[in-house]
């Protein structure tokens, strides 16, 4: 992801203050996070005060203002998955990636997050990588899954 792509997204919505959330979502999905310079540019091009952009960008959990990895790994720690051993899956993934939940590894490859129920309790313990669900995880299977993204 480079600045040109961000510029293109912003230019497409130039002058339309109402598109603020759309622009932010587009940058977020393409770039995985929104740099402060991008927020400043959005504010300038869309004609929305910077404080307002900051308020909205920090309000929604969708937007990340810190660098995120290319692959987003979510581990379900909801009740059902917890009972089926999601903690061991999480421990394994944490030691494989060398990061804890909520962190991003140093070469921006993976971000790890916990979620309290990712929606498929019958298939637990589950993990979600880049929106794709992997069911009935064990520490060994989780390792196999992560290898695919390496």
């Amino acid at each position: 992801m480079d600045n040109d792509t961000i510029d293109q997204i912003i230019d497409r919505h130039e002058g339309r203050a109402g598109s603020l959330i759309h622009v932010l979502m587009e940058i977020q999905s393409k770039n995985h996070w929104i740099p402060r310079e991008a927020l400043a540019k959005v504010s300038q091009k869309l004609g929305v005060p910077f404080t307002r952009v900051m308020q909205i960008a920090t309000f929604y959990k969708t937007f990340s203002l810190t660098p995120q990895g290319h692959h987003e790994v979510h581990v379900c720690t909801g009740t059902s998955c917890h009972i089926r051993g999601s903690q061991r899956v999480l421990d394994k993934i944490q030691s494989l990636l060398g990061i804890r939940a909520g962190e991003t590894d140093s070469n921006s490859k993976f971000s790890l997050a916990k979620g309290n129920c990712l929606g498929c309790c019958t298939l637990g313990p589950e993990i979600v990588v880049d929106g794709r669900h992997y069911a009935r995880m064990t520490p060994e299977k989780a390792e196999e899954v992560l290898k695919k993204y390496n």
Binding site: P49, F50, T51, R52, M54, Q55, F59, Y60
Partner: peptide, 9 residues
């Protein structure tokens, strides 16, 4: 001037 604003929720 919009020098101060809310952040987070």
């Amino acid at each position: 001037k919009y020098a101060v604003g809310f952040i987070n929720n």
